[in-house]
Amino acid sequence: MIRSNQVWAFLILALVYIVGVPFIVESRYILGILASAAGLSIIALGAWLTLAIGRVNLGQGAFALVGGYVVAIATTRWGVSFWLAIVVAGFISAAVGVVLGLGILRLRGVYFAMITLSFTEAVRLALLNGGEFTGGAGGISRIPVPGELSLLGVTIIPAFNSVNTHVASFVLSGVLLALAVLLCWRISACRIGGVFVSMQQSEELAQSVGVNITHLRIVAFGIGSFLGGIGGGYFAAAQQSVYPGGFGVPDSVSLVLYCFLGGIGYVAGPVVGTFLLFLGFQFLQDFQQYQMLAYSLLMVALMIWLPNGVLSLSEAGWIRRYRSQHGQAGAHHAG
């Protein structure tokens, strides 16, 4: 269902963003918040995958914490390379997600939302009380920046401290995000994506026509947790520290909000939502003590004006009329 010209369009867009932005943007600050928005988008995409099977997942903060701590412990204590550690972080988060999911994925609605919210708090408190292993309230600091990755003596990725670290972090976040979007896009466009939509509408009906819903729910939740772990692992290396308060319930809720405000009917929804709201919050800094107020007003106004997300604008009447007059079927907007 994905047309190859759409994939090319996406790859070119991603390449322009990853390569082009560091040339245009000189400010380290702006590069930093763009990189953070990309990192959060990866975690939000994980929440989006669980939304795709009709579950509000408020546990993404916990999976990001798990991923972050795996990277932190592996790189600082055992001297493991970041590149191996982040992959391991993703898989450990996924394993935690699968084990948790086996118990809780039959729950729905607020029950699932609340149990995952409890999980976010439980993980934070466990890390806080983890003693020397997790470093307690202070967490783990002095995480090394990613080192060189070479294959057969050929350098594939240079050590981050040998190049401009800020640009390197930005590029890393962009590449990871592009991969995460491709993964979710691929899932939503293949047969499983269609099955997910049917599960959103009625799990019983999907089951009655022979869909193994138990299996698919675990797959979706596991991949979502994997993305949470990857995102958390990225932040551990980018900020060079992790601590229990790094991701909490408010973050877990925000991540789902990003998905909704971007539009949960679209793969790009979580990414659009995250960039819009996260960057929006940063740029509202000029309002000083009114920053939070302006941000929350903006958010509530968006929810009332576009309850199905910013991307649902593409289905608004006037845009559809415009398209039909100009003979476009909307192919450019699918990515």
Partner: peptide
Amino acid sequence: SAREESSMLLAAGLALLLES
């Protein structure tokens, strides 16, 4: 809204508004 969960998220937005 197309999804009823939206009102849960609206409540989260209102929480932030009230807090500020």
